[in-house]
Write a protein that binds this DNA or RNA. Structure first.
Length: 676
DNA sequence: CCGGTATACCTTTTT
DNA sequence: GGTATACCGG
């Protein structure tokens, strides 16, 4: 085991009071955190140590590292979780004090949108376009992140959508409450509300959480900052770790100011800088330092290494997107045979998830295994949402957004008209939909035929509700339910393309698999427990245990720059180095923050250990049309030798590689033909 | 009430 | 190039 360097050691030993660790990329901050936890465990019970991260993946990895260091037994009881998981954990215990029931649902984007759409006035914007629910939702979300409630919300005159939000926000919040649901932002803001209104509850947590650690502190937003303040109290032992140069979530309300202000926010705070880099070659670090030097407001840091110069960083300018992909595949073949890399040593990083498509196609064509991280959220896919909607309603019948969603899915002859009549009646009588549907006299309002169908539907739901409550066979019950309502058949019927249908059915099965592995992992498995996990977007969970996934282990990794933070790879391809892509056009148009785009690029560069290759194209297909592209401004901000490199003379060895890669392509092609 | 086609609009980044 | 909504005919 390697020794800690001097500043690392200091950070580990400073256990009392406030501590800020400014940890440059690759400076071993995870080791500091885990060593620190290990050290605390000598004197403190595990339950009083809390470590907060932003992603489930980071939390899981941190726990694994701690377990490696101190053993499973001593790590037991440690609270290592995301902010949101901790929030839900707190709310599960105390939410009744805030007027919600314990079986509350968590609404993520799709559910939220549905709710907002129903509340939106039927008029158009001044520009004549129909109202965009997402714009309203954005404003609600950002208000909640600043702890501004529906009553306190005010709109500047120039912001038309904020004006609308003034009316929608209060009703949105009422709507959530009526559905016994909270949205993502509520998870944290309701915790604050709880703490402010119930000091005793807060006191209980303050006493329990003796040591608090926060990873990626530069990404905290206002609510998270407040939550930390509340939890750690005036004298708290709080240790935050972060790097302002890697702050890339400003658009989500993260305040890099939190890390810049830490010293006077928390009295007597100690600051320790970690600048020695253990990850990247000197060439890669030079690129990183030069680029980030173009940002002005930041804690001054300079990464250095004892290591070698390493391979030169390269920039490859390609003709178009397809050429970019095949160029990278050639590079993978070359690097792999020269350096004995495995596929998982390679990562392809891009600005937007949409860029993954072309790489997927070409990798598949070249028969190279790959894994796609992130992308279209698994749980946002329609068939998955439909499947989950059933489970949500069965745990929380007040959840009318999802009740209406499944009322006529699969088609059972309860159309829009009937649904509207039910809604109206429910408002008139002030009875929840779920109860109304069981009323004996609804046929007089919606007609005999419709009433009959509603009756059949609600009887089915009631029956399964009982089964889920009283049967031990969670999994079998769910499977029976989906079989009985004929979800699979519906998916086949709906899809116009059999391939697409198969994918959707697979996704539906994946939900069942996720449920199965949840049951396997958890001692006491409940439907609501499962839904909670799902809502917290633990996107690595589904299928994590499937065989396919295991077989694919040795695979090239594809992901967005945002999700690459915290990871490292021997070989990194940073693709789409073009104006409009990185930096993204949206940021440039809206006069947004180019420095954040620069940090994003910096994050990408610093993921690389040995080989870093930047690529871009001179033209690219956009919305199906070719469009000329300009090289990214960030290329001019790198050391000159990277962009000046003339094409190398292809040496004989390389030519041989080309031949090999051609051979591989032929093989792939033949393989494909055989499959058809 | 349903399923088909026309069409508009679009793409950041994620807990 | 793809997807979500709008509208129309059965």
């Amino acid at each position: 085991m390697l020794l800690l360097n001097e500043p690392q050691q200091q950070a580990v030993e400073h256990t009392h009071g406030a501590l800020l660790v400014l940890a440059g990329a690759g400076s071993g901050k995870t080791r500091v955190i885990t060593s620190r936890i290990a050290r605390l465990l000598h004197t403190t019970p595990a339950e009083s140590i809390v470590a907060l991260t932003f992603t489930n993946k980071a939390a899981r990895e941190m726990r694994e590292r701690v377990v490696e260091e101190v053993g499973r037994k001593r790590a037991k009881g440690l609270i290592i979780s995301t902010f949101h998981s901790l929030g839900v954990r707190i709310l599960r215990q105390h939410i009744e004090r805030l007027g919600y029931k314990k079986n509350f649902s968590i609404y993520a984007s799709a559910d939220q949108l549905r709710l907002v759409r129903d509340l939106l006035p039927q008029r158009n914007t001044s520009a004549g376009k129909s109202l965009d629910a997402e714009m309203v939702l954005q404003r609600i979300s950002s208000a909640k992140n600043r702890l501004i409630g529906p009553d306190a919300f005010t709109a500047p005159a120039y912001d038309e959508y904020a004006q609308i939000t003034t009316h929608v926000y209060p009703r949105y919040q009422q709507g959530l409450k009526a559905c016994n649901a909270i949205d993502f932002d509520d998870i944290l803001s309701l915790c604050i509300e709880l703490f402010l209104n119930h000091p005793k509850v807060l006191q209980q947590y303050r006493t329990q959480f003796e040591y608090i650690m926060v990873d990626e502190y530069q990404d905290t937003n206002h609510v998270q900052y407040r939550l930390l303040r509340e939890l750690c109290g005036p004298q708290g032992n709080i240790c935050v770790v972060g790097d302002d140069d890697q702050s890339i979530y400003g658009w989500r309300g993260a305040q890099a100011g939190n890390i810049l202000d830490f010293e006077h926010d928390f009295a007597g705070a100690r600051v320790i800088k970690l600048e020695q880099n253990y990850r990247s070659s000197a060439n890669i670090l030079a690129a990183a330092n030069t680029l980030i030097g173009h940002n002005s407001t930041r804690h001054d840091k300079h990464l250095w290494t004892n290591g070698d110069e390493g391979a030169p960083v390269r920039y490859l300018c390609c003709d178009d997107g397809e050429d970019e992909a095949t160029t990278i595949i050639d590079e993978i073949h070359t690097l792999r045979s020269r350096h004995n890399y495995t596929y998982r040593d390679f990562a392809i990083l891009y600005r937007t998830n949409g860029q993954s498509r072309i790489f997927e196609e070409q990798l598949r064509f070249a028969n190279i295994p790959y894994v796609l991280i992130g992308g279209q959220q698994f749980f946002d896919r329609r068939e998955v949402r439909d499947t989950l909607a059933y489970l949500k309603v069965l745990t929380n019948p007040a959840d009318e957004v999802n009740l209406l969603r499944i009322l006529n899915y699969p088609r059972r002859g309860i159309g829009e008209t009937t649904a509207q009549r039910l809604i109206t009646l429910s408002l008139e009588r002030e009875i929840p939909l779920w109860d109304l549907m069981q009323a004996p006299d609804i046929h007089t309002h919606i007609g005999e035929k419709a009433a009959e169908r509603v009756h059949t539907f609600i009887q089915l739901m009631l029956r399964y509700k009982r089964l889920f409550n009283y049967s031990d066979h969670l999994l079998a019950t769910a499977q029976n339910l989906f079989a009985e309502i004929g979800l699979e058949e519906e998916l086949y019927r709906q899809a116009d393309d059999p391939k697409q249908a198969r994918r959707r059915v697979e996704n539906m099965h994946e939900v069942v698999n996720a449920l199965a592995s949840y049951i396997e992992r958890e001692g006491i498995a409940t439907l609501s427990g499962f839904l909670e996990k799902v809502s917290l977007l633990d996107r690595d969970e589904p299928g994590r245990n499937t065989k396919e996934e295991k077989l694919q282990q040795d695979a090239v990794v594809l992901m967005s720059l945002h999700s690459s933070k915290g990871l490292e790879f021997p070989c990194v391809f940073l693709v789409g180095m073009e104006e409009g892509t990185l930096p993204h056009a949206k940021v440039l148009e809206e006069g947004g923050d180019v420095t954040e785009e620069r940090r994003l690029c910096y994050v990408g560069i610093t993921r690389a250990r040995e080989h870093l290759i930047l690529t871009g194209a001179t033209q690219r297909k956009r919305y199906g049309r070719m469009h000329p592209q300009q090289p990214s401004r960030f290329l001019t901000e790198l050391p000159q030798e990277i962009t000046n490199t003339p094409e190398e003379e292809p040496d004989p060895e390389e030519q041989e590689q080309r031949a090999t890669s051609f051979f591989a392509q032929m093989q792939a092609m033949l393989q494909q033909q055989r499959e058809q």
